[in-house]
């Protein structure tokens, strides 16, 4: 039996996406974090959603828990947020994907729901521990709207390359 090359490519891409998020936030900080908008780059979620939809990956939950742990340790220092959010996204995506036939629009809508859930849960955790005191209305205007717009644009750019990548390596 041939071992799927996806076994190596998935974790590799997962961590590249994870660290690219930080690098992009650093390089474009002037445009992404202004008084009126705060964009959270979530390439890593795009990678996970595309992998769930188009790839066949073993131990995906374990890998996402691990990536979430690295996110929490390295970026925030508050362990427990993304460790839960990332596998939750995998579960949600699998749950929704079951009911649809795959197409660009379907995956796009699933991705938008995932981003919304992740952003809202992350905001809620930070509100709970006093890292922010922005109100719900303020959060929607400041962070959620711009985060959705940015990640939507990235999705449109990367959907077809990623789809082809996952389909060709998962056979």
């Amino acid at each position: 039996m041939r071992i799927s090359r996806m076994r190596y490519f998935f974790p590799l891409g997962l961590f590249i996406a994870l660290f690219l998020d930080g690098a992009l936030s650093q390089v474009f900080a002037g445009a992404m974090f202004t008084p009126t908008l705060a964009i959270e780059s979530r390439l890593v979620l795009l990678w996970i959603v595309m992998a769930v939809c188009f790839g066949k990956i073993d131990h995906i939950i374990l890998w996402t828990v691990f990536a979430g742990l690295v996110f929490d340790l390295y970026y925030t220092g508050i362990i427990g947020a993304f460790v839960v959010i990332m596998p939750l996204i995998v579960y949600l995506t699998k749950l929704m994907y079951r009911f649809f036939t795959p197409s660009f629009i379907v995956v796009l809508l699933i991705y938008l729901i995932d981003i919304t859930v992740a952003t809202v849960v992350f905001y809620w955790i930070n509100l709970l521990i006093g890292f922010t005191n922005v109100s719900m209305a303020g959060f929607i205007g400041l962070s959620l709207g711009s985060t959705l717009a940015y990640n939507l644009a990235v999705f449109v750019l990367l959907y077809f390359p990623l789809q082809r990548f996952f389909e060709s390596f998962s056979r």
Partner: peptide, 15 residues
């Protein structure tokens, strides 16, 4: 040198 910034609206943190 600054390595990275938290991709988060609530943590104004750099590494």
């Amino acid at each position: 040198s600054v390595l990275t910034r938290s991709p988060s609206a609530w943590q104004n943190q750099v590494v």
